[in-house]
């Protein structure tokens, strides 16, 4: 990838979203952290500062159709509250532990019914389309949510370049398996690798996105560096992180949470306030940073764009 200087004006700056108090608090925390840490050499290192990550150049601002008119969740919350079991099952584990991941160099294996299979370096994969910003709602199946300014390329543009064949009805994704880089994989909480998948028409939908950054910078490791899926109308677990494989299949692929607990996590996993998780309600959600819960919207607020994909499908059974 060429790295010319970014034009700052084109990218949503995190400072826009961090209010003054938060900026001050971050600064104070950093200063305090330095004081408390005392010895910079040896001892336990502080988690790497995601604000030190490289800014992404030449990012087209989010088109109106791809930006929700809601306040994005603070950069700090987006990068410190993550479900990424490859680095531990606690919400703060990924931010603390993910520094062992090496996102460069990276490549993605493309196989199955596809015209151009092979191991594709990340740079080549990204050549499919210019980088753009998307400001999407993100709703976790655990009933919390956020709004994230992602940077990446439309999934459809990437898939088109691979030339999927007539038998490609689904695209399956896999996360890296490497317990050295992903210490959480030393325990078999999940049958690694983490797997996800989409029906082909879902994958080709303009909202489906491959993100390589957020808030103007490359993805922090804890958010799924260097490349992750973002499917905003589905529960967060569909948006698989640190992707190393894309397979074009005839049959519906196995997906991790569906395999683990099929009665609780469906293959579709469309956000649906009408269909509760067997153990808790999906009718409402807590937006990170807010006190009161808010109602959850059908398809996470993207019903107008995506409901057509599921015409005639019983969404209670195909949850």
């Amino acid at each position: 990838m060429k790295i010319p200087e970014p034009r700052e004006s084109e990218v949503t700056d995190e400072a826009v979203f961090l209010n003054r108090r938060e900026v001050l608090r971050l600064g104070a925390a950093a200063a305090l952290g330095t004081l408390v840490a005392g010895c910079p050499e040896g001892g336990q290192a502080d988690p790497p500062d995601p604000l030190a990550l490289r800014r992404l150049p030449d990012v087209a601002p989010a088109a109106p159709a791809f930006r929700v008119d809601e306040e994005p969740t603070s950069f700090e919350d987006v990068t410190s509250y993550n479900n990424f079991y490859e680095f531990g099952t606690g919400k703060q584990d990924p931010a603390r532990e993910a520094h062992t991941l090496r996102p460069e160099p990276w490549s993605v294996v493309v196989d199955g019914d596809v015209g151009r299979p092979g191991r594709v370096p990340l740079e080549d994969l990204l050549a499919a389309a210019p980088l753009e910003e998307r400001i999407y709602r993100f709703r976790c199946v655990e009933a919390w949510s956020m709004v994230v300014p992602w940077i990446g390329v439309p999934l459809a543009r990437v898939i088109e370049r691979f030339q999927p064949g007539p038998k490609a009805a689904y695209v399956a994704f896999e996360t890296l398996v490497d317990p050295e880089q992903m210490p959480g994989q030393r325990r078999r909480v999940i049958d690694w690798p983490y797997r996800e998948g989409l029906r082909m028409d879902e994958a080709m939908h303009p909202l489906a996105f491959l993100a390589i950054g957020l808030y103007g910078r490359v993805l922090p490791n804890q958010n799924g560096a260097p490349i992750r899926l973002v499917v905003p109308w589905k529960y967060g677990f569909k948006s698989i992180k640190s992707i190393v494989r894309m397979s074009f299949t005839e049959k519906q692929p196995h997906t991790s949470w569906n395999d683990l607990q099929p009665s609780e996590y469906g293959f579709y996993a469309n956000v649906n306030p009408e269909v509760d998780h067997p153990r808790w309600s999906q009718a409402r959600e807590r937006r990170l940073g807010e006190f009161r819960k808010r109602p959850t919207l059908p398809f996470n607020g993207y019903a107008e764009q995506v409901a057509g994909l599921y015409a005639g499908l019983d969404l209670r059974r195909n949850f």
């Binding site: 925390a29 305090l32 919350d77 410190s80 509250y81 919400k91 919390w144 807590r286 940073g289």
Partner: peptide, 11 residues
């Protein structure tokens, strides 16, 4: 008090 309430203090 020291690190702020974090992303989801109620949880």
């Amino acid at each position: 008090a020291l690190h702020g309430p974090g992303a989801n203090p109620i949880e």
